[in-house]
Computed example of a mutant assay.
Amino acid sequence: MASKFAVEVELKSNPQKVWERINDYTNFFPKAFPQVFESVVALKGDGNSPGSVRLIKYGPEVPLKTITEKIELVDEENKKMSYSVIDGDILKLYTVFKATMEASSKGDGTLVTYSGEYERLNEQVPHPDNVTGFILNALLALDAYLLSKNEKS
């Protein structure tokens, strides 16, 4: 039976700028954060639209080495995207891992919600707090990057 997770983080950057970078994950994140994202390669499609499959190779700072994701949904109007992990290190812990990320306006900034479902391989496998923590840190780094590049608005 699948368990659910949900975390939120408030960013100072504009929701449209945050969404543009999240939606261009394949190209943007390896360039902006090479110590964390060694590469993101589109194996099928453009790597950013529904049906695309992308291989993510993480840098030395990340315990996971690779994952392969299939993008299930991209909703430009609502700044929302969903994906399923279909291969890689995370599936050594979870038989199912699906996530949705949504960026919405909050005051002058952005509220990003990261939620989804997972099934642990067995009872000894921890809940994915390390995964959600990693995503939150990546979003905070994105916010700092956008603010430093004067991309707030």
Rank of each mutant, 00 (worst) to 15 (best):
Y25D: 03
T26G: 06
T26R: 10
T26K: 08
T26Q: 02
N27T: 00
N27K: 08
N27H: 13
N27P: 11
N27F: 01
F28G: 01
F28Q: 12
F28C: 03
F29Q: 03
F29A: 04
F29I: 01
P30Q: 10
P30D: 05
K31W: 03
A32H: 04
A32Q: 07
F33K: 08
P34H: 12
Q35E: 11
Q35V: 14
Q35A: 13
Q35Y: 13
Q35M: 13
V36H: 07
V36N: 08
V36C: 11
F37E: 13
F37A: 10
F37I: 13
E38F: 12
E38Y: 06
E38T: 09
S39E: 11
S39Q: 10
V40P: 10
V41W: 05
V41E: 14
V41H: 05
A42F: 07
L43V: 01
L43P: 03
L43A: 08
K44Q: 04
G45T: 00
G45E: 13
G45F: 00
G45D: 12
D46R: 00
G47F: 04
G47I: 01
G47C: 00
P50G: 00
P50I: 05
P50S: 00
P50F: 00
P50N: 02
G51W: 06
S52D: 06
V53S: 11
V53M: 04
V53K: 14
R54E: 14
R54I: 11
L55E: 09
L55N: 09
I56Q: 09
I56T: 15
I56G: 04
I56Y: 11
I56C: 12
K57S: 12
K57W: 09
K57M: 08
Y58T: 10
G59Q: 09
G59M: 08
G59D: 02
G59V: 14
G59S: 12
G59I: 10
G59W: 14
G59A: 07
P60R: 11
P60C: 03
P60T: 05
P60W: 01
E61T: 12
V62K: 05
V62G: 06
V62F: 08
V62I: 11
P63R: 06
P63S: 06
L64H: 03
L64C: 00
L64D: 05
K65D: 14
T66R: 05
I67R: 13
I67A: 01
I67G: 03
T68R: 07
T68D: 06
T68V: 01
E69Q: 14
E69P: 14
I71S: 05
